[in-house]
Design a protein around this nucleic acid. Structure first.
Lengths: 140, 140
DNA sequence: ACATAATTTGCAACAAAGTTGCAAACGGTT
DNA sequence: AACCGTTTGCAACTTTGTTGCAAATTATGT
């Protein structure tokens, strides 16, 4: 695990620091998405708020994580599974937000279907967020 | 126009006040979406910031407007074209955010395609946001 | 392994965004 | 016109996000 974290950081020309390691660890141990607030709560006692902001920003810049817009105005972040190149994501999968437990999941296996825009509109990026009840909450 | 505004408010059991009228006017005169900040700038000299928040909230509650999540963490609001019942929206159209001019448009004519979720997931709501270059910016 | 250069961190101060309680003003009803 | 319930504006506050700078940490060359 430490090896993997090290590798991810170095591959992206980021120096291996305590906060980056810790935050990456959080993402790897979790299979979902995290909001800034979550990270602050889980790692914020050790690190300054500002550090969390800056760490997330650098991960975003390098394409290690991607952001997921949600209707409640709290951006979530999740690991990019593929190797997203710097500044160019290709996370064309659907995001699922559970209304019960609040977790956000990347449905990597579900691709976003193609849509046809009206004349004149030029698509650069597409986001699809489905909300409802997740697998785990459905069982209970 | 005033007649229409009056009607919308009364239909939703909201009293007709200056701020509600003004803000509804803004939405009706514009064919796109507005962020809280936009509204504050365009109507905020007359009204308190708090009033704008509360007005938007009551419009949301009544289903007069709906919110559009965007990647930059600034929620936009747009009029519901159909009659959304209270608490239950059915704005199944795509939203388009222009990266040049920043405007958000409801593409009412483009419906969100159906997707199949993995087993166990139950869909309640779906959001699709496309970003790129809008019709107007494409011309220039 | 150590000194040095470059990056990163934490702090403080600040700006922006959003919330709450309460008294005054306003809208709707009779 | 007078009454009652709703809405507004104000003030104070919390939360969220940003910036500059000195101190600490990480990477690099020898």
């Amino acid at each position: 695990m430490d090896k993997e974290i090290n590798h991810i950081l170095k591959r992206n020309q980021l120096s291996v620091t305590e906060s980056r390691t810790r935050i990456l660890e959080l993402f790897l141990s979790l299979n979902g998405a995290l909001a800034h607030g979550d990270i602050e709560k889980k790692a914020g006692e050790k690190f300054d708020r500002v550090t969390v902001y800056r760490t997330l920003q650098s991960f975003l810049d390098k394409g290690i994580i991607h952001s997921i817009p949600t209707a409640d105005n709290s951006i979530r972040y999740a690991l990019c599974k593929d190797n997203c190149s710097e500044g160019h994501h290709h996370d064309n999968h659907i995001h699922f937000v559970c209304k019960i437990c609040g977790t956000t999941t990347c449905l990597d296996e579900v691709h976003i279907p193609a849509v046809k825009l009206p004349g004149g509109f030029k698509m650069q990026q597409i986001e699809m967020v489905v909300s409802g009840m997740c697998k785990d909450c459905n069982k209970k």
